[in-house]
Amino acid sequence: MYAQMVKSEASKDDPDKLAAFQARIDAGDKIEPKDWMPAGYRKTLIRQIGQHAHSEIVGQLPEGNWITRAPTLERKAILLAKVQDEAGHGLYLYCAAETLGVSRDELTEMLLDGRMKYSSIFNYPTLTWADMGAVGWLVDGAAIMNQVPLQRTSFGPYSRAMIRICKEESFHQRQGYDIMMKMCQGTDAQKRMAQDAMNRFWYPALMMFGPSDKDSVHSAQSMTWKIKMNTNDELRQKFVDQTVPQAEYLGLTIPDPDLVWNDDKGGYDFSEPDWSEFFDVIQGNGPCNTERLAARNKAWDDGAWVRDGLMAHAEKRAARKVAAE
C-alpha cells in the first residue's frame, strides 16, 4: 500500500474507556472525529492516512512525467484525468486526517522535511510509455487490493474517503491494462517495451504491501482497531493470484522463475522481493527519492506567493465588506 510499515502507538488511556472503545469497534461501529478515541488510535491514524495522502500526491510525479509525451491526444487526456484524480485522492485523505486534529499544511511540511514517508513505489523512474501501462495495471492494482478492504475501516472519515477513492481507482487500473494490451498487440519492439516495464515494476509492486507482518505487534494492534484489515502477506498473495492470469492474457512473463501454482493452498508460490532494496528505498536511497522530494519542495515554495496572495485578497475583501455594512 500506500501506507507501509505504519508504526502503531501503544495507548496509556483509561482501561475502562479503552474497553468500551474496543467494544464499539468489535460491534462494527464507525468512530467519528468528535467521539472519544485512544491517543494511540489517533496518532497511528494520522500517520497512516497522512502517508497515504502523501503517496497520492507524490504519485502524480512519475505519471506527470509522460503527460506531454503521451502517444495520442486521447491517451494524453486520459492520463491527465488520472493524474488529476490522484490529486483529488490526496485531498480527500488530507481532509480525513485533518479531522484528527492535524492541519494539511503541517502534514505537508512533515512530508517535505522527511519526517513523514510516502510509498516506496514512487521512487522508481518511469522510463518508457509502457511504464504508464505497468503503473496503472500493477501499482494501482496493488493499491486497490489494500483500499477495497479499507472501505470498512473503523474510522468514519477514512472509510468514506476510501469509498470515493475506490470508485475512481478502477478506472486507473483499467486504463493501465488497456495501454498494456495495446503494446502487447503491437510490434516486437512494443512487446519488448511492455515486458521490460513488467520486469522493472513487478518486484517494486510486491514491495508495496510491505514486509511480512505475521509477527508484528504494530500490525496486530492496527488490525484490532480495524485500521488495517488484512496482513501484508494476505494482500500480496491475493495480488499475485489475481495478476498472473492477467499477465498470461497479455503474453507477458512474470520475472520470477520460481512462480508456480500450488494446488494445496489454492494460490501461487512466488519469490519474495529483495527486502534490502526496499529498506534502502524507504531510507531515501531509491533511484528517484531526491528528485521526488525536490519536486514537491519546489512546488510548495513556488506556490507560496499564490497561497499568500489569495489569502490576502480574501481578507481584504472581507474587511471591505464589513466596512460597508
Partner: peptide
C-alpha cells in the same frame, strides 16, 4: 467536519 488544528507548531 474538522477540528481546526490551532495546536499547530
Amino acid at each position: 467536519m474538522n477540528t481546526p488544528a490551532e495546536t499547530a507548531s
